[in-house]
Amino acid sequence: MKNTENTKYVFFKKAAVLGFFVALFLLVSNALYFAWVVPETVIGKTDKQFEDRDGNFDIIFFGDSHVLSGIDPQYINGSFNFASTGENYFQTYYKVKKILESDGEKPKAIALSIDLHSFSSTRVKDFGNLWYWKKYVPFEEMVRFEEENKTQRWMQTYVPVIGKGTGFVELFLQSNKANVTLGYRALNEDFEKAENRKKTGEKRARFHFRNAEDFDELLVEKFSKIIDLAQENGVEVFLIKFPVSKEYLAGAEKYIDAEKYYANFDDIISKTKKKGEGIQMLDYQDEFFDNPGYLSDSDHLNYRGAKALSIFLEKEIEKVISLD
């Protein structure tokens, strides 16, 4: 019995020592992750560029990868591309809120994408990179759909290095050389050269729309709040339908009635505090139907498409606000 007690003591002592070293290891590697790896990621670079801005931006673009790869701020004076992969209105709301409620000078306008998948219920729980979002979104909000996985989400928020060791390998290989300019990351592929464009477009559409509700209530609520917030702060709002391939749109229309969708969307806009007054709608959805060379894949622009769209946009935006 005494011997058993003694081995228990030895075991727990060693376990405590091991636990201490594991905690120390995690603490150090987590700090190194934030110091070395994060600044090399696309969102890390975007954030840094936004924080280090010299003066104020006239217009800031928000949204997901459609915006991230579709707006090249070099061709729109005074603009910044603050989009991030997979970003939804829920996340954008908190980002916009932080910017508009800060003490600094506010932008003259914000721009959001209003694509067919923008309100889709498949996007609402898509909350990656919690460590990044924690500075915008309260933790309780980030885990509102995942009560069961709260502990795991907490770890992902505050100890993101767990499971992210490949970031250090990328650093070592210098393979993550994503070039980010004013928040914009260029894509280089050419959809025109893709084999079986129809199938690719259909697959991508299926990913966005299958088993999804067209309008998720929470996304509608947050979207309306973005509009209200902008208008309360005297900030113009541009809503942009981003160019996609005809193959993608054909695939999407198997799941979603585009006409009905945008009619419902108009209804949402009309219910905002100022009933949509002063909101600029810009539709480029079919702009590059006959130019697949402007797309990187079925629904993302490449650097050529981003340049072309940005040039179009600058002209349209300048009709409403002056870009310095």
Binding site: V22, F25, S29, N149, M155, V161, I162, G163
Partner: peptide, 17 residues
């Protein structure tokens, strides 16, 4: 060796349950 394996699991594991 144990600590390295543990560290590898923590850093390079996929924790998506």
């Amino acid at each position: 060796v144990y600590i390295i394996i543990l560290a590898v699991i923590l850093l390079f594991g996929v924790f998506e349950e």
